[in-house]
Design a protein around this nucleic acid. Structure first.
Length: 274
DNA sequence: AATGGCCTGGTG
DNA sequence: CACCAGGCCATT
């Protein structure tokens, strides 16, 4: 379930590895769901960047390739196979199960798009085509308590649902929403507009904190998420509430509860989150 | 603003 | 066998 920190980790690693490479071929294995490029290849990649939870590859000439991993999508980079046997990255076998598509580069390396649940997308956009409209990036300078208050004060939805709304704030998913609410000591079911100024300040700071920490730890691996070399993130070691139903709160030692908020499992401490 | 559908693998 | 995971989109 890649969220902002997982996507940011992948984007940084991809940027390092594929910028300057030329896509010579795009193989589609899941013909029902993956669309072929609407532009002619070869195309050189000039940048890889994050847009909310989208991965955007800028191509020379202005076109873009936009990837969304949804829940189980993975981008795995397969370097050029060396001449000597046994030196290839053992974590990345040549043929991946559930491989839906692959970008082939002119130097012989390739980027595999693997997705068990087939929710993930690869879209090709011509020069000038717009990217999806999203809300404020929570790691940007403009994400302040004041901005959050302005966005949220009229909302009557539960704060958890508000945090997951990509049109309001782009990049937070189920895990980091629960983690941020725990740090800010706010219940996921609280009405957004009922939050007081100190609570908003705490929440904004908690969101930045958990996202930054997530990036620092290379993301949160529960089961599917992997970095482009096949290795795992380790933010799950810093996890306070997500998926910890029945366990003790790390702050007050009360028992962690699970409730449904907006149809999503939400974990929180009954005692210290108000 | 709330709900259902898209998917498949894992679990009870 | 039923149910759950869950981001996003279409529909109400």
């Amino acid at each position: 379930m890649p969220e902002l920190p997982e996507v940011e980790t992948i984007v940084r690693e991809l940027h390092e590895v594929v910028v300057g490479k030329t896509v010579v071929r795009f193989s589609v294995f899941d013909v029902q769901r993956i669309v072929r490029p609407c532009l002619s290849l070869p195309q050189k990649i000039t940048a890889v960047r994050r847009h909310g939870k989208y991965i955007v590859c800028d191509l020379s000439g202005g076109a873009r390739c936009v990837v969304h991993l949804r829940m189980t999508g993975e981008l795995l980079f397969a370097p050029v196979v060396p001449a000597k046997a046994g030196t290839r990255n053992p974590k990345l076998p040549l043929n991946q199960k559930h491989e839906r598509a692959a970008f082939h580069f002119s130097d012989g390396s390739c980027l595999r798009f693997v997705d068990v649940r087939r929710f993930g997308t690869v879209e090709w956009r011509k020069s000038g085509d717009p990217l999806p409209m999203l809300g404020i990036d929570p790691l940007s300078q403009s994400f302040s308590s004041k901005a959050f208050l302005h966005l949220s004060q009229k909302s009557i939805r539960p704060i958890k649902s508000f945090l997951l709304d990509q049109q309001k704030i782009a990049g937070i998913g189920n895990i980091y929403a629960d983690e941020a609410l725990w740090h800010a000591k706010i219940r996921p079911s609280r009405k957004t507009g009922s939050l007081k100024a100190p609570e908003i300040k705490a929440l904004v700071s908690a969101i930045r904190r958990v996202l930054r920490e997530g990036i620092k730890k290379g993301g949160f691996t529960l089961r599917d998420y992997r970095r482009i070399d096949g290795s795992f993130g380790y933010y799950q070691k810093s996890r306070k509430v997500y998926n910890r139903e029945g366990e003790k709160c790390k702050r007050c030692h009360a028992t962690i509860r699970r409730i449904k908020v907006g149809g999503r499992s939400s974990y929180y401490c009954l005692q210290c989150q108000l």
